[in-house]
Design a protein around this nucleic acid. Sequence first.
DNA 1: ATTTGGAGACTAGTATACAAGCGCTGTCAA
DNA 2: TTGACAGCGCTTGTATACTAGTCTCCAAAT
Lengths: 232, 232
Amino acid sequence: MLDMAKNSEIADGIERRTTADFVFERLHEDIVSLKILPGSKLSEVEVARRFGVSRQPVRDAFARLGNQDLLVIRPQKATEVRSFSMEQISHARFVRLAVELEVIRCACIDPDETVAPAIEINLELQRAAIESEHSDRFHDLDYDFHRLICEYGRRPLAFETIKECKQKIDRLCVLSLTRDSRATTLVEDHCELIKAIHDGSVDEALIVARRHLERLDETISLIHKTHAEYFE
Amino acid sequence: MLDMAKNSEIADGIERRTTADFVFERLHEDIVSLKILPGSKLSEVEVARRFGVSRQPVRDAFARLGNQDLLVIRPQKATEVRSFSMEQISHARFVRLAVELEVIRCACIDPDETVAPAIEINLELQRAAIESEHSDRFHDLDYDFHRLICEYGRRPLAFETIKECKQKIDRLCVLSLTRDSRATTLVEDHCELIKAIHDGSVDEALIVARRHLERLDETISLIHKTHAEYFE
DNA sequence: ATTTGGAGACTAGTATACAAGCGCTGTCAA
DNA sequence: TTGACAGCGCTTGTATACTAGTCTCCAAAT
């Protein structure tokens, strides 16, 4: 309870970390990992008591989470964890697809070849990860892969946008257990994509990318059916 | 000073409006319209005094503006209005382009024809607006046009994303005075775009859209040269 | 002349107290 | 039995006091 005060002091190596930061990160993690389920009510005072802080930093943290669409805050009403909306999920996926496609187009036209080696290494590691069946490891590598693609297309900031979309969808996909079974297919997609970009065949690359991201859709609609209670 | 308290009470027709909302909106407007210039320092107490409220709602408003990248807030340091960054502007334009292209692709493949009449009317009004040289009116219609395109492609939420990007760029473009001279060209773009979509020629539509959004680039780089002091 | 140290006036972060709206629940009357 | 209404406990919103960093400027020492 009180030990967090110490944490917030010791961890300020580069930037000053506030209590609000701490509360925010903890809550964020709990919400994204579904330790706190959609629809749950969160009281400022209750959370404040739990963390041993005053309401103020909790309030700040709530506001930030609200801005990320994770909480719905209404004056004088209990703020609650936002439940999933098929529209929003679909929109996040749409934006991600749009941005990713455009990044790939950039990569085809004017690639930053200094990034190419890193991609090759990443692909190798992906293959290794699925052989040794480290699905967490693969997940990290997949994340890196899409980041590298953005750098390859000289659009590093695009990954920030992609990341935001990804987070919204990932929160949902925590509910899915079929993740790793698809890993092999996903790696194949990645390889095909890189090959197409190397060959400079824009259209082919875009088709592969589209197919790659569409694989999520079945997972999403499956979850929609099996976990309807978390949808609004 | 105190009259705003009344304002916040009378305006809550649909949803409860808080003092923080009020402060946020006022500041937002002032920042976006460049009444408050990039680099300006904003003090919580000073703003609170100016609006005749306590620091708390101002703090909330600051946090929100910070989340929109309009303010840079650092612990124990004066928060200031974020100056423009060419990277961010360019990124916003990139995301907007990506999303808009994908929306148009949707509109070509599976358009919501119930929206078509509204678009026709909008185009007519655009022509009327530039003839009577109402540039503000044209700006509103342009806004509506891009909203309608999203509905036409059955992606209404996409406009929210486009709007966010637009806002970031528009804040910069307030500095430009050459807006209206281009109106005629822009309307022509709009018409061409709609025609291409109607004809179902996806590639043509995408080319037109690309060209349309690229027109912003010269304006942006012009401002970058003439107003370097507002860039970081 | 340059540097350094410290006072004071800033900054934002936090804690606490109070105000005010919403919703439930229990009671009382029809 | 059922409906309405009052009151209470919950929620968040706001105000204020206090803490603690940061900056600036000026004076004193080198």
